[in-house]
Design a protein around this nucleic acid. Sequence first.
DNA 1: AACTAAAAATGAACTGGTTCAAGTCTGCGG
DNA 2: CCGCAGACTTGAACCAGTTCATTTTTAGTT
Lengths: 193, 193
Amino acid sequence: MKYTIVDHIQRQVDLNAEASRDLEGILVNRLVRKRQFIVQPGFACTHQTYVQKGSFRGYLVTADGTEHTVQFAIEDWFISDFHSYIFQEPATLFVEALEDSAVQQIEYSHVETLCKTHHSLEHFFRLVAQKSFAFSQKRILSNFEMQAEERFLFFKKQYPQIEARVPQYALASYLGISPEFLSKIKRNSTQST
Amino acid sequence: MKYTIVDHIQRQVDLNAEASRDLEGILVNRLVRKRQFIVQPGFACTHQTYVQKGSFRGYLVTADGTEHTVQFAIEDWFISDFHSYIFQEPATLFVEALEDSAVQQIEYSHVETLCKTHHSLEHFFRLVAQKSFAFSQKRILSNFEMQAEERFLFFKKQYPQIEARVPQYALASYLGISPEFLSKIKRNSTQST
DNA sequence: AACTAAAAATGAACTGGTTCAAGTCTGCGG
DNA sequence: CCGCAGACTTGAACCAGTTCATTTTTAGTT
């Protein structure tokens, strides 16, 4: 069973024959090597990327040179610099492969065209955006609700596959703490088990 | 010129006669008194609320009893507990009127029905969700990029109408700092002007 | 299997922001 | 126009998390 973007969408909405044919028509399959970037600051993020195999992280580098991870993506997830994608403005994020990966990409203008012709696709992308927004809000809340240690334990529980596959400095920067402090948290929380 | 939800939508997408008539049909006009809640934890957030007049804030109360503001809304903005609205699950937020206000509300199931019958409305709500998500991501980023003082100055510059109308403890909790510290920031940043 | 470079762990000194407690200002109800 | 409650200010003690410098572990390459 191989992950594909069409299956992913079919799981959530009904696509008729034309819609799924048209969608197939705009898909671009691509292999991406570990450490390779699919989005870089300064260039508009022209595509949404669906991960078939492998993993990615999206991160920001601030003026002081530190990295801040915004999003991880593994099999069956989408990733992009969404702000850049939606407004077709230069990206501010890096999106980098954490492993050798296989992806399917769809281009902004193609997606917009298909959304006009197929109500079902417009519906799908509405659902995606709404859920993404809801989770993004929840993430802001969870930073208010939890201390660093709780956030780590929560992440570990909710996304064990990701926690296991991702470099620790990347996870620290996702949790909003320094790698040193994440190290301490791990020590404290495992010794008390 | 009075704010209405139909005008708001027309500014972004073309609604034909039936679509705007059907939309009018599900609108509920409502007056809300200062300090009144339109969303409360425990109850599902059944409506999206469009602000015609007045202002609102959405906030979370954490276990330790402190408030954390997630969103403000003034004229021509929408507000809700979006996670609760989308999944029709019990809300975790309070949404409270900061002033006597007038709103237009649309109910979840009605919106979903209209999105099915009118592609244009589905399109509108996709755009809204996408922009909301993009801004939500940006907000997460801005907490990484800026220190508390910069966040305050940025907010003040970007939303001067809101900064002026909103109680200071609410703004502090939006910025993720204590009211005392916001007070200090203001002192420091005005004395150096 | 040995070599290397990057990643993770550790500890000590430090800082941005919190907490608590007390004082001041403001607006509006009687 | 007085009183009083809620909102804002101030300062001192404190703490969660950072920074920096060093050591240990891990993983990729020849």
